[in-house]
Amino acid sequence: MFTHIIRGEGRRITYQNAGVDCAFVAALSTGFCNWRIDFTYADTSNKIYRTSRGRTHSECKIDPMRNNHPQTLPRYGRACAHLHVNGVRRVSQCHHITK
């Protein structure tokens, strides 16, 4: 299960984390190899204005995870987390950032 957690109020993000919460059967033996987690931010027109690209990890992990720094977004819209494995986006989860 891929999870994306955001804490804060309005456009202010005080905590953000994304990762695999519990590994499913296919990942139990080797895990996720060559993985990275990216965070993207889009406005209310769905135009991405910021991307925080994560580092690619060559090791295999059952529970990849990444935190992102606190920040204040310039616009309302949505914040998303994306898990990439071997350069391919495998799953995403988004939150709407509203007043």
Rank of each mutant, 00 (worst) to 15 (best):
V91N: 01
R75S: 14
R36W: 05
A42G: 03
H82C: 05
V20D: 04
N67M: 06
M1F: 04
S92M: 06
R78A: 11
K47D: 03
D38V: 01
A23E: 09
C80T: 00
A79M: 08
T30R: 11
S29C: 06
T51C: 10
T56P: 01
V88N: 06
I13T: 06
S45K: 07
R12D: 11
N46V: 03
C94V: 06
E59G: 15
H82I: 05
I6G: 00
C22Q: 15
T56K: 15
R7S: 14
M65V: 09
R36G: 02
D63H: 15
L28P: 04
R66Q: 08
R75K: 15
H82M: 04
H57A: 08
K61Y: 12
K61N: 14
T44W: 02
N67S: 14
Y15W: 13
N67A: 07
Y76T: 13
D63N: 14
I62M: 14
S58V: 14
P70L: 02
C22N: 10
P74K: 08
R50F: 07
T72P: 05
H69I: 10
I48T: 15
F32Q: 02
G31Q: 07
C80M: 00
R7Y: 15
M65D: 07
T14G: 06
G8V: 01
T51G: 06
N67P: 02
P70W: 00
M1R: 08
Q16K: 10
F2E: 02
K47S: 07
T40A: 11
L28H: 10
L28M: 11
H57Q: 14
A27F: 07
I97W: 00
N86R: 10
T51S: 14
R36Q: 12
G77H: 02
L83V: 09
F32W: 12
L28W: 12
T30N: 13
L28V: 10
W35M: 09
R55G: 04
V85Y: 07
S52I: 11
K47E: 07
R50Q: 10
D21Y: 13
Q16C: 05
T72S: 12
V85C: 05
T98S: 15
I48G: 11
W35G: 02
G31F: 05
T56L: 12
C60F: 04
G77S: 13
S52D: 15
F24C: 15
D38F: 01
D21L: 12
R53E: 15
I97Q: 02
C60M: 13
E59Q: 12
G31K: 06
A27D: 13
